[in-house]
Design a binder for these strands. Structure first.
Length: 569
RNA sequence: CGGGGCGUAGCGCAGCACGGUAGCGCGCUUGGUUCGGGACCAAGAGGUCGACAGUUCAAAUCUGUCCGCCCCGACCA
């Protein structure tokens, strides 16, 4: 492609609306253009990258035995009423009305449609298992699009769905898909971390996310440096520090005027945070929930929400707390009944805790479970933090930020059960089809690749997904001798099967070199009066600092060495 | 939805407290000189100042309403 004819324009300055690196660079380089909030055009450069990622995904999906199909974006609301997920998704779905006032929606995902297909086709265990996938635009009216391509409202996604007669079959496919995902991300040149994830309101059992490590990521990952554990913080568990165990002392009330927060209490009574009990109140649906946890820890709302199966969980207001008969700042489960008490096991790691006295300006010393109070549910509701122990090996955990590029999970019968997708097993007994589903945010993956691969001059694309393989820069092309050499080289490279962006514009060298750095194509070749005189071509890899001069005759072989081996297909 | 910021030429911005000719840099067009890391000279094109309403002799500037975009939070199969 000749740059002079290419539909691309670079910007010298960062667009004001972008402050995520990938967003800035993709806009500056002319890869994407925003139409409205969270809706982007993929311009030729961006589209080329997207199609390369898609091609890799297709190859790996096909190799893993999945079959491609295409399902409609436009879906009838009735289908979603079967699973009730039109309510679970709520405001996030884009609704449309047809001319007959029939309500339709723009698919945010395709479990319902694909399960309808399975229901129609699958009669017998002999029809199972199989896996279907598509690469298609999804629509979600996110409350807040952000970070350029990282969180948008219209986006290309690869979604796959597997159907099984039993859990063992699902396990096999799940592992195969996990491996396919590893292959995909590796071929895209992106190191990812496979982490245990929360499966969210959709239900199901196992769930894993594939994370690209990046500061701009929306998720926090807790992982063990030993490599035996990694999880999204929403799901992560850890070994909490053991508090000191003393012989139990008698409960004793102390005056604590105006002392409310754990911080204040610990300071006022001169005890460490981990020797206090924290009480937090949530509103779940139409009732309140009383959460108790050791004072140095925090409540993981995702874990808590999962205990209440999808209920609308939010922090209760002080007003609501008082109405339940509790005094904010001085509340504790001691001598209290009325609302459900959920406790974290950390309240047993230690003894003689300081806890609220359920009246203003007073606390108890030496509170101990179960001597002094009882709880309704004892379950892990704590946020895991770096520094705490790995549940597998005990080593201190670490944390990092990540971009969720892929997510796989075992749906089991969460969808198929509600939709009556059944089959007859070997014994002629009707059973519910078991499902798995597997997603990759393709556009987000593209952005993640930039978050991962860039420097202060621009993007640095991995070979396999770069928009072009070679960036040919011609300098002083107004000299006929130079342009004829450059034109010939361009033609030769193309006929050798390379994808070449040929900068034949009448721009100064500085502009061309800076654009080459910005666009981040893996190999830059320069032809100029200088190189022609020496009978060489300058070769510079984007990720290297130095360039080398290669004799014109040896160039093709040299390029093959630089690029060839990476093209795995 | 709560908090904050912003909307003036294709892009980045100034002008607005104090109302009176719409400006700068980049980019773009034409001609010339340049040519290995964002060249120079000269001449140009390009804007209903987000929208609507109000105040005023007069509004980019003051007032009101609405719309849009970005950031933090809430939320996020």
């Amino acid at each position: 492609m000749r740059f002079s004819q290419f539909f691309a324009r670079t910007l010298r300055e960062n667009p004001s609306e972008a402050d995520t690196v990938s967003h800035q660079l993709l806009v500056r380089g002319g890869f994407v253009h925003q139409l409205v909030a969270g809706v982007y055009s993929y311009l030729p450069l961006g589209w080329r990258v997207l199609r390369k990622i898609e091609a890799i995904i297709r190859e790996e999906m096909d190799a893993a035995g999945a079959q491609e199909l295409a399902m409609p974006v436009l879906q009838p609301v009735e289908l979603w009423e079967e699973t009730g997920r039109n309510l679970a998704f709520g405001e996030i779905v884009f609704n449309v009305k047809d001319r007959k006032e029939h309500m339709l929606l723009l698919g945010p995902t395709h479990e319902e449609v694909v399960t309808m297909l399975a229901r129609r086709w699958v009669k017998s265990y002999r029809d199972l298992p199989f896996t279907l996938y598509q690469i298609q635009t999804k629509f979600r009216d996110e409350p807040r699009p952000r970070g350029g391509l990282l969180r948008v409202r219209e986006f290309p996604m690869k979604d796959a769905y597997s159907f099984h007669a039993d859990g063992e079959s699902l396990d096999v496919t799940y592992r195969r898909m996990a491996q396919a995902y590893k292959n995909i991300f590796e071929r895209c040149g992106l190191p990812t971390l496979m982490v245990e994830a929360d499966s969210g309101a959709i239900g199901g059992k196992d769930s894993h996310e594939f994370m690209v490590q990046a500061e701009s990521g929306e998720d926090t990952i807790i992982y063990c440096p030993g490599g035996d554990y990694a999880a999204n913080v929403e799901k992560a568990d850890s070994l909490k520090e053991q508090g000191e165990t003393e012989s139990l002392l008698p409960l004793e009330a102390v005056a604590t005027p105006d002392v409310k927060s754990i911080e204040e209490v610990a300071k006022f009574l001169r005890v460490p945070h981990k020797k206090t009990l924290k009480a937090v109140f949530y509103s779940a649906g139409d009732s309140l929930v009383f959460a108790v946890i050791r004072g140095d820890l925090d409540v993981n709302e995702v874990k808590l929400r999962n205990l209440f199966k999808g209920a609308d969980l939010r922090l209760a207001t002080d007003e609501e707390t008082r109405q339940a008969g509790l005094e904010p700042g001085y509340a504790s489960p001691i001598g209290f009944k009325g609302i459900k008490i959920v406790a974290d096991p950390s309240i047993t790691l230690g003894s003689n805790f300081v806890a609220g006295a359920n009246k203003k300006d007073a606390h108890f010393r030496n509170a101990n479970y179960p001597r002094d109070f009882s709880v309704d549910v004892m379950a892990d509701i704590a946020i895991a933090k770096a520094g705490e122990g790995c549940g597998r090996c005990g080593k201190p955990l670490q944390s990092t930020r990540g971009i969720e590029a892929g997510h796989i999970f075992k749906l089991e019968t969460a969808i198929s059960g509600k939709m009556g997708a059944d089959f007859l097993d070997r014994e002629g007994v009707s059973r519910t089809i078991i499902m798995g589903c597997y997603g990759i945010g393709v556009g987000r993956l593209l952005a993640a690749a930039v978050e991962y691969g860039h420097d202060d001059r621009g993007m640095i694309w991995p070979e396999n997904i770069a928009p072009f393989q070679v960036h040919l820069v011609g300098l002083n092309l107004d000299q006929p001798q130079v342009s004829s050499v450059a034109d010939r080289l361009y033609a030769d490279l193309k006929s050798a099967g390379l994808e070449v962006l040929y900068d034949d514009r009448a721009e100064s060298p500085g502009v061309k070199f800076n654009d080459a750095d910005l666009l981040g194509i893996p190999v830059r070749l320069t032809v100029s009066p200088r190189t022609i005189k020496a009978g060489v071509v300058e070769v510079k890899r984007r990720r290297d600092k130095e360039s080398t001069m290669i004799a014109a005759e040896a160039l093709q072989g040299h390029l093959r060495e630089l690029l060839g081996k990476r093209n795995g297909s």
